[in-house]
Computed example of a mutant assay.
Amino acid sequence: MSETAAPSATSTVYLIALGAFALGMASYVTAGLIPMIETAFAVPVAVAAQLVTAFTLAYGLGSPVCVALLPGHLQRAGLLAALAVFVLANAASALATSFSWLLLFRVLAGIGSGVYLAMGIAAAATLSVSGRGKAIAVIMGGMASGTVLGVPLGLLVAERLGWASALWLVALLGLIALLGLAWRLPELPATAAIPLRRKLLLLADGHVILILLVSLLAAIASLGMYTFLAPLLTAPEYGGIGSITPYLWVWGIGGVAGSFLIGSLADRIRGPVLTFAIMLTLTLALLALPLTAGWHVWLTMVPIALWGAVGWALQVPQNNELIRAREKQGDGNLAVALNESALYLGSAIGAAGGGLLLVLNLPMWTLAIAAAAVGAIGALLQILNLRRRAL
């Protein structure tokens, strides 16, 4: 990268990260808006909660299909169009006059989110070849910041101005990123026209499948356990805390720190090695949860912060490795989209698995141990990836 190109590439990456901030905010703020939406549209809470399901399913399942169908010569236009869909869908959500329309617009927002993030990561990797890991880390840090900082901000605005104001804020942030990218984003190299049948051969790439499987297991362990952190820490034998909020903040702040700090490491340490170290750390942090909670509940802040940091950081080397594995075939953005799908699928599996353990009335510590066991399986699989690279 030339010296004159570097500042332009840097500003573009930060604009993509701003869009990712809006995406992270949109992904989780709806859950906090459910009571307000329930009242506004006179629907049961179980029905209102389907807004989150609609967004995540569209994100996880719809985005890889859209990325796969996008022609290789429309990379820049595709990224801008995905962000425009995201902005318009959030604005339309804020204007929705019925719950059915709101549900439809959340589906469109989910698809736009997934396509934008996958193509944004691929674009950043293209523009920042010498510092690819750092560029991806900035984008993932933006998404983590949107979740940790943006969601509370959105909910605070909603409490004062109504539920729609949070979605207007998301749309405004997305619009700023869209206008900035329309101005600063250069033309991206066109990839060769690849028939859909050939793109699907990506699923026959053993290296890619192994990476995706590790991401899936990491999401089952990390995001699955996140769902049940409150039941664990509010249990009498583990402190019986009254508020889970400080612990969620520690998890989130750890995630933001991990997302940004991993960038420099990703450019110096081989991706598979870094992923193995992260999976091992995640496993140990989850194992430490019931142990530290049994000593004193405040001690859990340490493994929770570590868990948040490595849980969010993992996707930097994973996405970097996927792009590296498929850039010659021209479908790295599709591999990244599938990786995002693996995360959402893993979150759903982890939540369902943890719920099953609770239905069986098993001790609370089994939640953390089960999550750690899944993380350990992921670490063992990553050893296979290391051996594969060594051959």
Score class of each variant (00 low, 15 high):
232 L>M: 14
270 R>A: 13
258 G>R: 00
277 A>M: 11
229 L>V: 07
213 L>T: 15
186 P>T: 07
204 A>N: 09
199 K>Q: 07
267 D>K: 00
277 A>N: 07
267 D>L: 00
235 A>Q: 10
282 L>I: 04
213 L>C: 15
255 G>I: 10
187 E>I: 04
237 E>I: 06
200 L>N: 01
249 W>R: 08
190 A>K: 07
273 V>W: 11
259 S>Y: 09
215 S>G: 12
199 K>I: 04
219 A>L: 05
207 H>N: 10
260 F>T: 02
224 G>V: 05
223 L>Q: 12
230 A>D: 13
217 L>T: 03
215 S>A: 14
258 G>I: 02
245 T>N: 15
199 K>E: 09
256 V>A: 05
200 L>S: 04
196 L>A: 11
205 D>E: 12
190 A>C: 02
267 D>G: 00
204 A>D: 09
280 L>N: 01
197 R>K: 14
221 A>H: 00
242 G>P: 06
233 L>S: 00
281 T>K: 00
254 G>M: 08
241 I>C: 04
273 V>A: 07
265 L>R: 03
270 R>Q: 14
201 L>R: 13
206 G>Y: 07
226 Y>K: 10
241 I>H: 03
194 I>E: 14
207 H>P: 01
201 L>E: 15
201 L>A: 13
237 E>L: 08
284 L>H: 04
278 I>Y: 10
200 L>W: 11
184 R>G: 14
245 T>R: 15
220 I>S: 03
219 A>I: 06
232 L>R: 09
